[in-house]
Every structure is written in C-alpha cells, then in structure tokens.
Design a protein around this nucleic acid. Structure first.
Lengths: 124, 124
DNA sequence: ATGCTTGTATTAAGCGCTTAATACAGTAGT
DNA sequence: ACTACTGTATTAAGCGCTTAATACAAGCAT
C-alpha cells in the first residue's frame, strides 16, 4: 500500500481519495471486507480519528457500507462503482484540460503535447 | 480575473499557482508591472498578508522581481518563463496519467478515453 | 463469562493558515 | 513639505485539522 500523503491538503481528504480510487479500480473488490479503522490508520501512519473521518465520507458516497460490529465492506453495487470510476476519470481529464488551456494550449496543441511526451516510452 | 479559491488547500498556494500560470501563459507579459499587494488582495478577496506570501514564493522561483518601493515586475527572462510553462504542463500530464493508471486504465485506454470525450466537441 | 475485535465518541492540546489592525521605510507626484 | 503609493513587519485572535488518550457498546470465539 502506498499511503503517500502530502501536507498541503487535509489528510482525511487524501485518504478518502486513495480508498475511493482503490474501490473504483477494483483493487478493493465489490463486497469485500475492508481492514479496520485502527489497522488502516496504523498502516497509513495517521490517527484513527482521521481514518474514521475518511470512512465516513466514503459511506456518504455509498461506496462502502458499515456493519456496526463486524466492520466495513465495499458496496456490491457494481454500477455505482462504475459510475464512480467514470466520474473520477472525467474530472481528472477536465482538470488537465482546464489547466493546459490556462497555460495557453489549444486543444490541438494539448494532443500534440501528450503525443510528444508519450510516444517515446513503452507502454506502462 | 478569476480568483476562484477553494478551502481545501492553503490560499497562498493557490494564489501562487494562479499567478504562476498567468506568467507562464503570457497573460502577464515579461517585464510588465504587476498590481500592488493591496490591490490584488482586494481583487482576490484575501488578506494582504496572504497575497504577500504568494508573491514571496513567486520571487523564490525567480518568476518575479521586487523593487522595494516601485512594485513588482514579471521577469524578463523569457527562457525561465518557457521552462516554467513546460514544467507545469509536464507535471499536469504526469498527474493525469498517474491518476488514470491508478484507476486501472492502460495507456492505450487513456488515449481512447480522451478521444471519446473530446471528439464530440468543437475546438475550445 | 472472558477476552478480543469491531465502530464510535469525547476531550484537550498543538499547529498552521488566515484575518484584522496597525506601523514603518522609501519613492514619486504635486 | 505634503500626499499617496510602494513593500514589509508585527501582534493577536479565530478556526480547522490532527493527534493522543481515553472510554463505551456490541458481536464473536473460546
């Protein structure tokens, strides 16, 4: 697990994004049991309260479900997960496009820029 | 001027990024005089101290120069500006690529995704 | 029943960011 | 000289995030 956190944004937000991405990608499969608050907090090197807060946000998004004493589980709603994945991807693309436009790139130039940076490497 | 600030990251960082982008894009031309701390702070709706801090960071990056009582000026070093623009663009692309990969997209899929989202629109 | 695990809640403390309210030094225009 | 503008610095206050240290309720395995 990565848990690379920076100090520029609230940690609970970053934890939420990391877990959300893992759910969207299928790294955390639908219906699977998640590690406990305390265990994940230790892994990530944060306070349990902070991890708890990240979980609360994921629950608000209907990406996980809580069973009071058994633990937390990734939703089994595959459609919900697919939507989340597409929403994140679109948001990222839009973010990238907007920033490039602010820098003065036209759409055609963006495509050229991406090509010039990617054609040199092998697939990864 | 936009000055769209969110509360999720330090304001001085966001101000710094906005100004940096304006310099990189040429919206603030090389050698041009910048507005005063107080004026920009009022425009952005932030405290002068906070805007001051953003300026200090831009100066550390050699993107602006300060004349004690006259004001601040965008650097005339066009090469420095070009480098900044390229660095920002590369960083944004890398950010996008990394996030998409975390979501489970292969490079080919990323390209397809971008195409599918962009081919429908006219140039913007 | 005991012990271990689960989620959840509370309190106090520290820290950085942000603001408000000033103040000072230096330059330019009148 | 006076005024208005520059950048710069200081102080105090408030706020949210984060941590540490607990504590409690509920289920499960033995």
């Amino acid at each position: 697990m990565s848990w690379k956190l920076d100090s520029d944004r609230p940690i609970h937000t970053q934890l939420q994004e990391i877990l959300q991405t893992q759910i969207a990608s299928g790294a955390l499969p639908p219906g699977s049991k998640m590690k406990s608050v305390r265990e994940l907090a230790t892994e990530a090197g944060v306070n349990p309260n902070t991890m708890q807060r990240a979980f609360a946000e994921l629950e608000r998004l209907n990406l996980i479900r809580t069973e009071r004493t058994a633990g937390r589980f990734v939703t089994e709603d595959a459609a919900r997960i697919a939507v989340a994945k597409d929403e994140i991807a679109m948001a990222q693309l839009e973010l990238f496009r907007k920033k490039m436009k602010q820098l003065g790139f036209e759409k055609k130039e963006i495509v050229d820029f991406v090509r010039s940076k990617w054609e040199e490497e092998e697939d990864g």
